[in-house]
Every structure is written in C-alpha cells, then in structure tokens.
Design a protein around this nucleic acid. Structure first.
Length: 871
DNA sequence: AGATGGTGTTTTTTT
DNA sequence: AACACCATCT
C-alpha cells in the first residue's frame, strides 16, 4: 500500500473519531462496530440511547470506514492535505461521503425497532438532532408492531388479507371470543376466556397456525377445546379482515418465511437492523428480527438481561442470553459505566442483582461520589409510609428541589391509593402515570368503532359494539338473529341489515334497523365530503351519542369532554398528514398508540407509577414503597425461583431509577384487597449490604421495643411486651385490633370516602385538582362523621421534621382560618391565607406560600398550623 | 330496557 | 375495599 494511502487511512480514523469524542472508549467501540451481529449489554444509565443514535449516525455518515483499509476512491496528495487540514481545524470535510465513507447506508436502509411509540419517537428526535431533519427523519424507527403494519399494508394480500385490514385490540379480541363462547355454548368457568386468550397468544408466539395446533394430539379436553376455539377465532378475524396485536407479528413472520420475494425485498432494504430492549423480545419477535436481518446479518441488539421484567407478557430472556450462540460470530460489548446514580445506590443495586443466577454478569460502576446512604424507613401503616414520604419531600423542597424531582414507585397499582389520598389531603400535587388510557375509555372506543365500521363494513365486532349504543331499540336478540343470518350466508352483518325487508324473522325490528342503516349511509357519505375532524364531530352528533351523554349528569360531561379531545386528536392527525390523512390512517394510529398526551415533563408534581412503568426513566429522588414479602416480591412469585429472579430484576430496575437519593420503605401493617396484612420486610432488603443503608423507623413503633429495627430476620418471632397505656394488649403489634387503629387518627377507618370520591379523577384529568374537588364534595362530610368518635391519637415521639406539628390530624375543634393569617405547612413551609371557604364542617384554605406558590388544602386535614392571626 | 343485588376478582403492560 | 360483571327482577 502506498504510504500516502496509509497515512490517509490513519487520518480518516482520526477524523471519524473526532466526531464522537463525547463517548467513552467502550461506547465508541460499539459505535464503530457496524458489521455483523453485535450484542450491546447496556447497564442501567449507561448511555444506551446515545450509543444507538451515534452508531446509526456513523453508519449513515461513514459506513464501515472506521478501522477499515478500504477507500472509496484513489487518494491524491491533495486529498491527503485537505483531510489533514480539516482534522487540524476540527471542521467537517466537504463531500465527506465521497471522500472517505465506505458503503454508507442511506437512512432508509436502517431499521431501528423499539417496544413503545415513546421510545421510537425519542430515537427519531435524537437522530434528527444529530443528522439533520431530512437524514434523521428518513431512518425507519418504529415499534415492532408498527413496523409489521407497514410491511403488511404493502403485502397482506399475499397471505389472504386485504391491505386495509383492521387492527383489533385486546378488547375487540375479547368480544370475538365471547361471541364464540356463546355460539359454541362453551362454559367460561370450564375454560376462562383469559386462559383461551393467553393460550392463543402463546401459540402465535410459537408461530403455530390453527392447523398446526389441530394436528397435534391434544393433551386433554381443554387443549382440544382451545384448539377448536383458536381455529374459529382465526377464521372469524380473517372473515372480518382483521388482525389482533399478536397477528401483526405472526403474519409478518409467516409472510417472510414463506414468501421468498417479500423476504428478499426487505432483507435488501434493511441493511442494518437495530433492536432496542432486546431482553423483552418474544420468540416470534426474535424470528422477525432474524428474518429481517438475514440478508446482511448486520443486526445489533441492545439490552440488559438484568432488566428483563416482562416475562408475563411473553418476553423470553433466553433471546438475549443465547444471542451469541444463535448469531454466530457475534461480538459482545458491555456498557458498564453508569452516568446516573451515586455509588451507594449503584452498589445497592449490584448487591441485589448478584443473587440471580441466569445472567450475563456485569458490574456497574460510576465516577460519582458515594452520596447519601440508601434510606430504609419502617412505617407503622401505609398512611404512616405516605406521611413519611411527604415529610421527606418537604425537606427537599426546602433545600431547593422541585416536586418533579420526586417519584414514588410501587409494585402494583392498588398501592397508589393511600399515597394519593394522603397527597391529595395535604395538597401535594401529584400525577399518576399509567392506569386507564385515553383510547381505552368506553366513549372513545365507541366513537372509534363507528369510524371503524364506516371504514370497514365487514367489521362485525365493532358493529355489534355500536349498533345499540346509544340505545335505539335493537336488542340483543335482534342482533343475534342478524348475526346468524350473516353467518349462514357468509356475508357481513351489515349486508343483512341493508336488506332487512327480505327477512321475515326480522320484521319486528325492521324499522329500527332500517333507521340505523340510513344513518350509517348518511355518515358514509359525509365521511368523503367533509374534513376528518368535522366528520368525527358529526358522528358524535348524528349517532345520538352526544344527546345520550348530555342527558346524563356530571359523568356524561366528562365523557363529552373526552370526545371533544378525540375530535381534536383527529384534527391533529389531519393537520399532520395533510393530503394523506384518511380515516383508516387515523384509526391505525389510534390502534397502535398508547397515550396520546405523553406526560409533560415540566409540570411540577410528584410522579407516581408502578416499577414496570418506570423502566427507562430516572429521578433525583426515588421512593420505593411496600418493600415487603408478599408485596414485593409478590405472593405469586414466592415459590418459583424463576419468578423470584424476575422480581429481583424488578427490584434492580426500581433501585437504579434513583440519581441522588433512594428511599425504601416497609410497613408493618398494610390494608390491601380488603384485608389488613402484616408482612415481613422484603427479602431484597437483606440482600443489600447493610453498610450501604441507613435504617429509621416510625416514631409510632418506638414503643414496641425488642427484636425490631435492623435485624428483620428476627422480627417475625419476637413478640414485644405490652405497650404502656394500652392495657390488655399483650401481643403487641400482632394484635390486629390494636394495630388497625389509625395513627394520628388518619387512615383505615375512613379512607374509603375519599378514595371513592377521587379515584377516577387523576386518570381523567391528570392532576390533583380534580382529586381535591372530588374529595371535598363526595367524601368529606361522611369522613368527618366517622372520625368524630375515634380516640385522639398519642402525639408522635418526634422525628417529624417540624416538631410539634400534627401529622395531618383532623382536629376535633376545627381551627378557624381567615384571609391574612400566616400559616406553616409541613411540606410547603410558610404562607399567607388568601381565602378560606367553610364547607361541611371543614374549610378549604387557599394559601400563598413563600416558595411554592398558591395551593388549596383542607384546613383540618392538611399538615397545617396557624402562626399569626390576620390583623 | 334499566335498576338492583349478588358474585367473584385483584401483579406487572405494550401494541 | 372497590369494582366489574352477570343474572334477575321490575
């Protein structure tokens, strides 16, 4: 090789490297490994997305140039000098691609697959930021499902589906199965629909067709029945021209397996395939990846076996564990430097996860300092647990932190209630992530079903859903008759309805059916003549849905608001897609999108969510509540080692969300599923090196001496003596009557009123405001009454941050507030009362706080104290 | 067709 | 405890 070429190549590497200087050496190695199978084991907080984005950018800008001896053209002395000058100046070389790239990919040659729309969106956004609007925007970054939809929209006809197939969500799926159960007179107690659903799903995951299943000798009568159901189910979806979520993957894999032409098309198109969160992939998804990447074998998967927490929905951790065996010649790169957490937090996570067998093994490290120890608090009750969190948040606010820096994580949604209740009473703004999604709400799904039937007249499932919603005198028996006739003739139900007069058995309902059909036709006409969003509005009106909701009271109002939001989301869709906007396009987007308004990060409130939903997120201060055996790890996992390992991974995920401080808490007693339980501290706590933890406990527990505290191993057997002042309680905290007593008068006995009043609200309106107003109206009066007979609680022994201040204790004689009073709130600090409105024996106080602005709280329930009277 | 009462259930979630 | 679902009644 001529000397000039050698020097040019060396300079080229230097030039390329200079474009990725912000990465650490391991990350850079991942970026420059472009060819062949690559497994990137990315620990929590190790800059995974950054690596992904940079790697794709490298592939598009330079191809496989880095570390290669190949050149795109013969090098001249002038080229060498140009490059040398550019490297020295630190600028970009003009016509970079022609001069030094080696087989760079065009943006559309890259396929990046994620699990959620959010992740896909983030990836796209960062690619755009890095590569520019056009280049970045042209990279295929999508979810497994939407990637499959795109493939199927092009090629579905090759497997006997219309290109315009409908997507059924789990609700539609259930409806189909319910219908099948009814038709075949299957007892859902013998075989719950849920098990049929999961069995069918698992067949599809294993890529077994109904015929494949039928060909096997059934294990028992149940298996034989499931096989029949599966066959019928698949047949019905095909007739309806519909696919469920699993079908999207299943049919795509089948297509690629059986149709060489289609397979080659996509294999040529996608020269580079990247898969995010690979530890969460299922068997079918694995096959999809392997087929798509089968042309070049340039497949890069990124994941963390320690964060595999979705086994219950089909994820198989073996995909990532066996990657190197399945993709021969695979390279593995471990990203172990953590940029997120302090070393105490990280070591706590490491010490927990090392108890798992079945893992690749990886030890995260950080350059950050030790930071605080991991805090572990033992609470007396779930209310006490909530109040402790509020205390700590208050401290942080005083130190200048924001509410949005805090997250409360729990194992299951049922745990959020007591914390919500406490926060709402104390006036702490919070927001719940997860729960019911916008597009899952009944009214939204109903209107979408109208739209779906207009797009696809064969969609009987959606037709059944809306034919008598609102009520228009088409009862269940009529619908069944229509269904039977349709089945007998092998035509869609709508066809029967169009020709009602031909069927004597339908004479009784003929008038209503005709009216319905007329309305349907009218809507079909409208759908092609007026703008989409306007049309959606018309559907709501002309179907009588609006009138129905207006006839209801408050509930109808909320629902109408939701429909208003639906119309505006149609508008957003129409605006974004311009000429290309179609009704079916909108429905598809809806079918594959989770929550429309991904929560805005700027809102200053505490975030509450399950640990599962927290994966991928980070917060300076994290509270993990319910660290108890039976809760976390849950009961279901206790006797199964594999499930225990998954719970442990979940614990690892929880711990690694924290950047600055981590607060774990355990409650000695907890009301859950209608029963007060006393759980042992979570076994995961004892897996954390005690040197990394700092133990505190509720002042309420201070009396129950002996055996508690640090050594939880012993507490199950130790029985403390009676507590002074409570004669007759000989078994201490094991006595449930004693323990059920609400601390500070706050809890068990009367939390229900509030909860029932406010429960739905956070989901519906996304914030505490509704919670509060709902609470005021519905719950308060009765709660106060409940309480009036309860004994006053003993004063806390005083680890409370503001000594002497009540723990949100209802006072028997309500303290009167008036505008101008100076008050002190345990969480928000000092403030001045702006307004006081008496209500149901209590008082809504509006306070201007020095630090956190204006808040409303209930005087008798908030941790509030009057300092000075107004003059 | 709508109200009512009784029953059963209740990890985690995306698409 | 809370809610969804179903069957039965009015």
């Amino acid at each position: 090789m001529p000397e000039i070429t050698q020097e040019y190549i060396a300079l080229r590497d230097q030039y390329i490297e200079s474009k990725f200087t912000r990465l650490n050496p391991v990350q850079r190695q991942a970026v420059f490994t472009t060819e062949g199978p690559l497994l990137i084991l990315a620990g929590a907080g190790s800059g995974k997305t950054t690596v992904l984005v940079n790697r794709i950018a490298n592939i598009i800008r330079f191809g496989s140039a880095h570390g290669s001896k190949e050149l795109p053209r013969t090098v001249t002395q002038q080229d060498l000098e140009d490059l040398r000058a550019t490297v020295q100046s630190g600028r970009d070389l003009p016509r970079e691609t022609a001069y030094l790239a080696v087989r760079p990919a065009r943006p559309w040659n890259v396929l990046a697959i994620t699990f959620t729309n959010k992740a896909a969106g983030e990836l796209k956004e960062r690619l755009r930021a890095m590569l520019g609007e056009t280049m970045g925007g042209d990279v295929n970054a999508s979810t497994f499902h939407s990637a499959c939809v795109r493939i199927l929209r092009r090629d579905a006809e090759r497997i006997g589906f219309p290109k315009s197939f409908t997507i059924y969500d789990s609700d539609d799926q259930q409806r189909v199965l319910k219908q099948i159960y009814k038709d075949k007179m299957i007892d859902d107690k013998f075989l719950p629909i849920k098990s049929a659903v999961s069995q069918i799903s698992s067949y599809k995951d294993k890529l077994m067709s109904p015929e494949d299943v039928a060909a096997e000798t059934p294990r028992d009568t149940k298996a034989a029945l499931i096989s029949k159901i599966y066959t019928t189910y698949a047949g019905r979806l095909k007739t309806a021209g519909a696919m469920d979520f699993d079908d999207l993957i299943y049919h795509t894999v089948r297509l690629l397996q059986t149709d060489a032409e289609a397979r080659e098309y996509y294999q040529n198109k996608f020269r580079y395939v990247v898969v995010d969160e690979y530890q969460d992939t299922s068997i079918a998804q694995f096959h999809l990846v392997r087929l798509l990447a089968g042309g070049t074998n340039n497949v890069c998967v990124v994941g963390d076996d320690d964060q595999s927490i979705y086994k219950f929905r089909g994820a198989t951790i073996e995909n990532i564990l066996n990657f190197e065996q399945v993709f021969t010649g695979a390279k593995t790169i471990r990203l172990e430097q953590n940029y997120r957490s302090t070393s105490n937090i990280l070591n706590a996570a490491n010490s927990v996860i090392k108890n798992n067998t079945g893992r690749k093994g990886k030890t995260l490290w950080t350059e950050k300092g030790d930071g605080d120890k991991v805090h572990h608090y033992t609470a007396a009750s779930e209310q006490d647990e909530a109040s402790h969190i509020a205390d700590v948040i208050g401290e942080h606010l005083r130190e200048g932190a924001h509410l949005r820096d805090h997250a409360v994580l729990y194992r299951m949604n049922a745990q959020s209630n007591p914390i919500e209740t406490y926060f709402a009473r104390a006036g702490i703004p919070y927001r719940i992530v997860g729960g019911q999604r916008f597009f899952d709400r009944k009214e939204v799904k109903d209107i979408n079903s109208y739209l779906a039937v207009i797009v696809n007249p064969r969609d009987d499932v959606r037709l059944r859903r809306i034919i008598n919603e609102p009520a228009r005198k088409i009862g269940a028996s009529t619908v069944d008759k229509v269904g039977e006739l349709a089945a007998r003739q092998g035509v869609p139900m709508l066809q029967i309805i169009a020709d009602v007069r031909q069927y004597p058995e339908l004479t009784r309902a003929a008038a209503s059916l005709e009216k319905f059909y007329e309305m349907y036709r009218e809507l079909c006409d409208l759908s092609v003549t007026i703008p989409l969003d306007e049309f959606a509005g018309e559907v709501i009106k002309k179907t009588g849905y609006e009138a129905m909701l207006k006839a209801q009271k408050e509930e109808g109002e909320t629902r109408l608001e939701n429909l208003g939001q639906l119309v505006s989301s149609v508008k957003t869709y129409a605006d974004q897609n311009g000429e290309d906007a179609t009704l079916s396009g909108f429905l598809e987007e809806v079918a594959l999108i989770s929550d429309l308004d991904s929560y805005d990060q700027d809102a200053d409130s505490v975030t509450m969510m399950t640990i599962h939903s927290a994966k991928g997120l980070e917060f300076p201060y994290v509270f993990v509540v319910g660290m108890e055996d039976g809760i976390f790890p849950g009961d279901m996992a206790r006797y199964n080692e594999e499930d225990m390992e998954e719970e442990r991974r979940l614990c690892y995920v929880a711990i690694t969300r924290a950047k600055k401080e981590l607060y774990l808490s355990t409650s000695r007693s907890r009301l859950i599923f209608g029963q007060t339980r006393r759980n042992l501290p979570s076994c995961f706590l004892s897996e954390i090196d005690p040197g990394l933890m700092e133990e505190t406990q509720s002042p309420e527990l201070a009396y129950s001496a002996g055996g508690f505290g640090a050594g939880y191993g012993t507490y199950s057997t130790s029985v403390p003596g009676g507590r002074s002042g409570y004669s007759g309680v000989s078994r201490g905290y094991l006595n449930s009557e004693y323990n059920a007593r609400p601390r500070g008068g706050f809890g068990a006995g009367y939390s229900s009123g509030f909860a029932s009043g406010g429960h739905d609200s956070p989901h519906y309106n996304g914030g505490r405001h509704t919670v509060q107003s709902a609470g005021f109206g519905a719950g308060y009066g009765s709660r106060t009454n409940h309480h009036s007979g309860a004994p006053a609680a003993p004063a806390g022994a005083g680890t409370s941050t503001l000594a002497g201040m009540q723990n949100a204790t209802p006072k028997k004689q309500a303290v009167q507030y008036a505008a101008g009073d100076l008050v002190e709130h345990r969480v928000f600090g000092r403030g001045k009362v702006l307004k006081a409105t008496p209500i149901a024996g209590d008082c809504i106080v509006e306070i201007q706080f020095d630090r956190v602005g204006v808040k409303k709280t209930m005087a008798n329930y908030a941790p509030l104290k009057k300092i000075t009277e107004a003059e």
